[in-house]
């Protein structure tokens, strides 16, 4: 179950613990109750109207770089 999709935080309402997220210019209010620290510009995984977790940009870049390394390996074979 677990349809969750990364969307970018555009604005935060700290009092209400909500954020407006943007996914391809679709804007939706989500709850940020489950996260300690979120900042405008963060990407969060959205599931049933809640931000579950931040996407770590460094780790994401590392995973992508790994794909490229594999590609390089694959190419030499």
């Amino acid at each position: 179950m677990c349809l969750a999709i990364p969307a970018k935080i555009e604005s935060l309402d700290a009092l209400a613990s909500t954020a407006i997220v943007n996914l391809n210019n679709i804007r939706k209010e989500v709850s940020t109750l489950l996260l300690d620290e979120v900042t405008v510009g963060d990407y969060v995984l959205v599931h049933v109207g809640y931000a579950l977790e931040r996407i770590d940009p460094v780790e994401a870049a590392r995973t992508l770089a790994m794909f490229d390394d594999m590609q390089a390996l694959g190419d030499t074979e």
């Binding site: 999709i5 996914l23 210019n25 679709i26």
Partner: peptide
């Protein structure tokens, strides 16, 4: 459209 793709991903 990108927006339609986005809405579809969001709502499954």
């Amino acid at each position: 459209r990108a927006e339609v793709k986005g809405a579809c991903e969001l709502l499954g």
